[in-house]
Design a protein around this nucleic acid. Structure first.
Length: 280
RNA sequence: AGCUUGACGAGUUCUCCU
């Protein structure tokens, strides 16, 4: 049974939905009944393949065979609808879950909060933060990072800062992700000065900026027409041993191309191929 | 030394600026 579950999960991850369902059918034919894990894998599998509707019908099937979906099954489904942008349906599932006496945990709340922040409903996400705290579920760094990102994307710097403060009050330390979200927000607001300030702060605080952070800055310099600075960062990080990824190369190449510096752009293209990166 | 069948795992590029 465990073997089947693992393989079904693997097929879903590879996008082979039909094959996964085939395998589920054949296990039933062999007299092996899918268990609660199998069903959660199916639900999550459909969701990850953007087929949350079908995932929901699996939930019905579970009840049909007398298995009670647990918080994992419900959370997977909620996350699926959230990722498809159907927040209404996600909330209906959440209500159903609560009505059946299943409590939301940290992961469930994070899925909802992250989804809301992504679609710009950060205020509603903040309400859920309140709800989870009231329910005795402790938010973690990831919870606050989602909220900070949401506020910063909505140009609500004050609220974003407020979240950062609240996070620290709970003894939660910002991570590279948190700083990345903040730097990205500042860059998009055109405030490179403060973005660099945050960068300094994070280094001073013992966090190591990664390619993602530097790509954010490179892109921002490129957009601001400061191509030389962008190239400098690129060279500096390569020297530090940080390997530029496709995103990073693309950002720089875009800058060079718009400045009609095609020779250099071509050189970077060759360099990325040499590094076994696949230009997209 | 081994994150050991299932859920959030978060931040960065482009698609001619909608």
């Amino acid at each position: 049974l465990v073997t089947y579950n693992v393989i079904i999960g693997g097929l879903f991850k590879a996008g082979l939905v039909d094959e996964a369902l085939e395998l589920k059918k054949s296990m039933t034919e062999k007299g092996l009944d899918p268990d609660r894990f199998t069903y959660s894998i199916l639900i999550d599998g459909f969701c990850k393949n953007k087929r949350s509707r079908e995932a929901k019908s699996i939930l019905g099937e579970m009840y049909g065979v007398g298995l009670n979906p647990d918080h994992v099954a419900y959370t997977a489904l909620i996350d699926g609808f959230m990722k498809e942008g159907d927040t209404e349906e996600a909330f209906r599932i959440k209500d159903e879950m609560v009505a059946r006496g299943i409590k939301l945990n940290l992961i469930s709340y994070n899925a909802i909060i992250h989804g809301l922040c992504k679609v710009g409903q950060t205020e509603k996400a903040k309400d859920l933060l309140g709800e989870m705290i009231a329910a005795g579920v402790r938010p973690n760094t990831q919870t606050y990072t989602s909220l900070i990102e949401g506020y910063i994307r909505g140009n609500n710097t004050n609220e974003a800062y407020e979240m950062l403060v609240e996070m620290k009050e709970r003894n939660l330390e910002p991570t590279v992700y948190t700083c990345g979200a903040i730097i990205n927000g500042l860059c998009r607001a055109g405030d490179l000065e403060r973005a660099n300030f945050v960068l300094e702060k994070m280094i001073a605080g013992g966090l190591k900026p990664n390619v993602v952070i530097y790509t954010t800055l490179i892109r921002s310099y490129v957009q601001g027409g400061k191509l030389e600075e962008a190239i400098d960062i690129f060279k500096a990080i390569t020297k530090k041993g940080i390997l530029p990824d496709v995103f990073c190369y693309n950002s720089l190449i875009i800058g060079l191309c718009s400045a009609k510096r095609m020779e250099e752009a071509r050189a970077y293209l060759l360099e990325m191929v040499e590094r076994r990166l696949k230009p997209d």
